[in-house]
Design a protein around this nucleic acid. Structure first.
Lengths: 149, 149
DNA sequence: ACAAATCCTATTGACATAGTAGGAATACCG
DNA sequence: CGGTATTCCTACTATGTCAATAGGATTTGT
């Protein structure tokens, strides 16, 4: 399944902000862009969407930057996905009136619609906090590994 | 999730062929096109792919048409999807060497890669026979419903 | 020979994606 | 108040994919 870059980078950016604002400071887009190897201008567009979706607060000016708008465990992944891409979780089938025998309708029910529900159930309860937790475990493991070399 | 028309129509076409060749006769593309309200020329392209993927056998000439290449319960849906669209079940993430801190990598593990596995597990054991069964139950219900009107 | 079917490939228009670019607006600091 | 650093907003563009159209070549049965 192809994930577009806005969705992927948006989630990466949110995770980056969460991880780097634990001291209470704002995170600049230029820092995120450097750390995550993203074009800053493109990242700004993505962050704009994330702010309009109320996932982050932005502060302009010399000590400006971004912070999460609320604790990470109250930022639902499905909301982020919907804000950044209106197709990824949507069931896009539309019935065709001119089709009498119902094969298309039943394939949709049995396959696409069920697959869609299934995907939603995977995402449903996940929050940004889960990604942060995963990242911390991941980087702790890396550190251990480096230590033993 | 957006399903492209080749995938959707391909599966519909296969189901149509299965349902309409139970007497042993081949099914013409023009009949499928009429029944399912698809452009015949476009359908031919899709059927070409299905034949090259060994899901159907084709017969040219005046009594030609298409038949399943083997019983429907041995035609796996995941194989069809892979033949018609090489992204739909693929995990398209590619690691970025220039990225030191591992946020992208861990988001991929926790989210995209797991979501992909989850989707696969839904499709994994389904065959064309399941769709045919669903369709028959569906159309039986429709018939009952019409009867009571 | 003819008709009817599949087979194959080229082309096109529309749309989405992945950026690039330029500057406006705002906030802080001296 | 002026300068600088930041976000904010919009326009543009290049590329690729998708969905479909089109035209004819090939094969088969009668």
């Amino acid at each position: 399944m192809k994930i577009n870059t806005k969705v992927e980078l948006g989630i990466v950016a949110l995770t980056d902000i969460a991880v780097h604002s634990e001291n209470g400071e704002s995170v600049r887009s230029s820092d995120i862009a450097d750390r995550q190897n993203i074009s800053q201008k493109y990242l700004e567009q993505i962050l704009l969407g994330l702010r309009q979706g109320k996932f982050v607060k932005a502060q302009k000016g010399i000590h400006g930057g971004y912070q999460l708008s609320r604790p990470a465990d109250r930022i639902m992944l499905c909301d982020i996905l919907n804000a950044l891409d209106n197709n990824i979780l949507a069931n896009t089938y539309e019935p065709d009136d001119k089709q009498p025998d119902g094969i298309r309708a039943s394939v949709n029910n049995c396959l696409w619609s069920n697959l869609n529900s299934y995907m939603r159930s995977f995402i449903e309860d996940m929050t940004l906090a889960d990604l942060i937790k995963e990242y911390k475990e991941f980087s702790a493991k890396e550190k251990d590994y480096m230590y033993y070399i």
